[in-house]
Design a protein around this nucleic acid. Structure first.
Lengths: 218, 218
DNA sequence: ATCAGAGCGGAGCGATCCGTTCCGCTGCTA
DNA sequence: TAGCAGCGGAACGGATCGCTCCGCTCTGAT
């Protein structure tokens, strides 16, 4: 994300350009934190949190919608990257478990879902979303093939799980992470083939049933 | 909730007073639906949904905050009523399971938690909240005593569970209910003593750790 | 039959909020 | 040293929203 065009003579962290390049990251991180906390937060809140003026924001993004889109797309890409790593795991079950832990920790779900509908998605985002769906499905199948995931689980159950974990939130971020991990462990136990109980209530979530958020709202 | 002072000669559903009494319920139900969907919704949205004018609202509630408080307190009372029924169940585990199902169906958690912080709570609400906590703790203990609930579960885990279920939401309310039930079943399987797995990640949620929402925000 | 007023619809006021623009300053960079 | 990238932040214009208020209707007591 840092600007690679800065092979300047000086050590790479002084001067105006370098500061600006650093601001790129600072602003994105601030925006992440702010909009995760309140998806309707004003732009000024991001600027304050980043410790910069509003101009620094508008120099980088043409509009609030642009920033939101960028944030969301980054989250989506992160998701795809994680799930790609996961399907490469030789152990289908461990691949799924590790994947969920990392995605929950990174709070990717809040980024992609709570922000959805606040901006017009690009075609590229649609492709990435489709790809993420396919890969997640593959991940679920592999975990089932390994015999560790209940057979009556469907891909969309992963969406419900992520939704549930993302809903856990306390003021302290690290504590939030811990509580989510605990919640995730309970869910995984309930989803594992070892986990008792008869059938899960039907009908299971259907394809596309969780996609309504992506329709532009407002 | 219907006005019992209407033992009028006519069948009890005609006349201005009766219409007004019916509006009481209509407005409350509309407010429930609207604020459940968007806690920041404007008052006018409630009036529209109820099919009445704004005056009809302000005749009943002095302010928006008043209405929110009423809604939230109703939810809290509902919770207490349900948990009272549950602790009376001779089967500790079935008491817990049935209770969770009813509370999740009624979407009580969204009412009490997503609205919290948007109004100044009354002392009476504090008492009810305390009582609900005690009763829930008793419920958990009874389920553990029955040997059906894992020993490393704490009361606050119920809070996490409700939080997670409340986060599931699709446009159709009945479908939302079904998906939440499915999610709840997974969680219960993960929480039941039969459910496999070693220890749950520690430390478990602590007392009061989920109460930060009740601090007045904004 | 009469009429005071409960009940209500809805326009509009005043306050607030928010996205975005723009001006002027600073201090790199060429 | 001149020029401009980069930025801070005031302020504008529009939108939103809680709430008030005026006037109408029609009930229900007399």
């Amino acid at each position: 994300m840092t600007n690679s065009a800065d092979a300047a003579p000086t050590p790479p962290l002084a001067g105006r350009r370098a500061q600006a390049a650093r601001n790129d990251a600072v602003i994105l991180e601030a925006a992440r934190a702010v909009f995760l906390d309140d998806p309707k937060a004003p732009i000024a809140a991001v600027a304050d949190r980043a410790g910069v003026g509003i101009s620094a924001l508008y120099r980088r993004y043409a509009s609030k919608e642009d920033l939101l889109r960028r944030l969301c797309h980054d989250g989506l890409r992160r998701y795809v990257a994680e799930v790609e790593v996961a399907v490469a795991d030789p152990d289908g079950w461990q691949g799924l478990v590790g994947f969920l832990g990392r995605v929950v920790d990174a709070d990717v779900h809040s980024l992609t879902v709570h922000l959805a509908g606040t901006f017009a998605p690009t075609p590229e985002m649609g492709q990435d979303a489709a790809r993420s769906g396919e890969l997640t499905a593959a991940l679920v199948e592999r975990a089932q093939a390994a015999g560790r995931l209940r057979a009556d689980v469907v891909v969309q159950d992963v969406g419900l799980l992520l939704e549930g974990c993302a809903a856990i939130r306390v003021p302290d971020p690290e504590r939030t992470r811990q509580l989510r991990r605990r919640h995730l462990a309970v869910l995984l136990a309930g989803l594992s083939a070892a986990g008792g109980g008869p059938e899960r209530p039907r009908p299971p979530p259907a394809a596309g049933e969780l996609d309504w958020r992506w329709k532009q709202r407002k």
